[in-house]
Amino acid sequence: MDDASKSTPPEGSTAASAAAAGAILTIDLGAIRENYRRLTTRLNGVRCAGVVKADGYGLGAGHVAAALMKEGCDSFFVALLGEGVALRNVLGPGASVFVLNGIPPGAERDAVAADLSAVINSPEQLAAWRTAARGAGRRLPAAVQVDSGMSRLGMASGDVERIGADPRAFEGIDIRLVMSHLACADEPDNPANERQRLAFERMRLMLPAAPATLANSSGIFLGQSFHYDLARPGAALYGINPTPSEPNPMLPVVGLQAKVVQTRLLEAGAGVGYGHTFHAAAPMTAATISLGYADGWHRRAASAAWFGGVRLPFLGRVSMDSIILDISALPPGTLKEGDLVDMLGPSQSVDDAAGHAGTIGYEILTSLGPRFHRRYVDG
């Protein structure tokens, strides 16, 4: 089966857009589905949600969520109200969509209209959602988040204790989940993980009985005691390694190819790129590709591209719209204008690229810019 027969182009995509773009981002929805299956197998019967915030980590929340629904996923998490409204418009009724940052003050009616589930992070958010339920004349779905030790979002222990003792605190609210978030799950030996689990246990017992969720992608690999009733993977679905100290148990999801704009012969001593941070020690061949920091490739990231399995190191600094490659390892004339070189794929994973940039795979994916032609396959 060729790529065209497997592809599901994004809305508004045409063949011309691939020709006009400087780089092509291929997103394998089949790999996302397989990663979901691998995680659900590890969860051994515990329900598994899908975190699709930041537009599905930059890969298209609607496409990702639709693919996950084919695997039986019926609960999704976004960060912002606007993301939730957009996702509901794509998915239609049925699936649960939780807004992790909570509903902004005054926007509760919009959340109710889109049938979104508020993640309640404070007594103020709880009171506002309770008022919204009275206005709607029905019980409204919500998750209650407690701060078990990350100090980012969620109710502090004292707030949980006070609210838990108030029999009217949750009037009109359908508590679908009690949740918290792990700060150090990617470090399995970090004692903070168990401290957070115990704090979560203590605080959830102060609240009305409801299903519990604590594990993120890496938390799934901490063991059954962290699984509770629902897991909330994000990064692992997109191929980022949830176990950084071990081989990646997930399939890669993205491939990125950049087009060659020009090739040239550099004379000995030639300065390359802004600041002339590289000078040719001897005559060499170079190629300029149509990809740069405006596309999310970090300016000071020391890295390389690949062509036919041959590594082509970067020369000098990354520019806004271009990168210069050393192509001396290729036979003369091998690489031509319009050819594609591999930036992300079998030779360089998202985690590899993150290591070169001194960052994490999350930032690489969510930085990938809008100028790419996005090609969806389900192979």
Results as ranks from 00 to 15, higher is better:
P252L: 08
P249R: 02
L237M: 15
I175A: 07
G223Q: 07
Q196F: 03
P191G: 13
P208T: 02
I240V: 11
V253Y: 08
F226T: 08
D229H: 14
P211K: 08
G172V: 04
R176T: 08
A236F: 01
F221W: 15
Q196M: 14
R176H: 10
P211H: 07
R204Q: 13
N248G: 11
R176L: 14
L237N: 05
N190R: 04
F221T: 01
N241C: 11
G223W: 03
E246G: 07
L237E: 11
K259N: 08
L207A: 06
S225Q: 14
E246F: 12
L251M: 13
D229V: 10
G239T: 05
N216K: 00
P242G: 05
Y238Q: 03
G239I: 01
D174A: 12
E187C: 09
P211W: 12
I173Q: 04
A183M: 02
E194S: 12
R202Y: 11
N248R: 09
F221S: 05
F226S: 01
M203T: 05
P247E: 13
A199N: 12
H227P: 02
L177R: 10
D229E: 15
R197S: 08
E201F: 12
A192E: 08
D229L: 04
L230R: 00
R195W: 03
N241V: 06
M179S: 15
P208K: 11
N190D: 15
F226N: 04
V253Q: 14
A210E: 01
M203N: 07
H181G: 03
Y238F: 15
I173Y: 08
T243G: 08
V260F: 07
Y238K: 07
F221V: 04
P191R: 04
C184S: 15
A209R: 13
P247Q: 14
L256Q: 05
L222Y: 01
P208F: 12
T243W: 05
A185H: 07
E187R: 12
L237P: 03
S225C: 11
D186E: 11
Q224G: 01
S245V: 09
G255F: 08
A199K: 07
S225I: 10
F221A: 11
L214H: 00
V260H: 00
E194W: 04
L237T: 00
A231P: 01
A210H: 08
E201Q: 14
A258I: 01
A210R: 03
P233R: 07
P247C: 06
R232G: 03
A236H: 00
N216D: 15
N241P: 09
P244R: 07
R232H: 05
I240L: 15
S218R: 03
Q224D: 15
C184D: 07
Q262A: 14
L205W: 06
R202E: 15
G219I: 00
E201H: 12
R202P: 01
P252V: 09
L256V: 15
P252H: 09
R195M: 12
H181S: 04
H181E: 11
I220K: 02
A212L: 13
A209C: 06
F221N: 01
P211G: 09
N248I: 12
D229R: 10
T263P: 09
R195N: 12
D189T: 13
V254F: 12
N216R: 03
A215W: 01
A185R: 00
D189G: 10
T213S: 15
S245P: 00
K259V: 06
S217R: 00
A215T: 02
T213C: 14
R197M: 02
A212Y: 03
L230H: 02
I220Q: 04
E194V: 09
H227C: 09
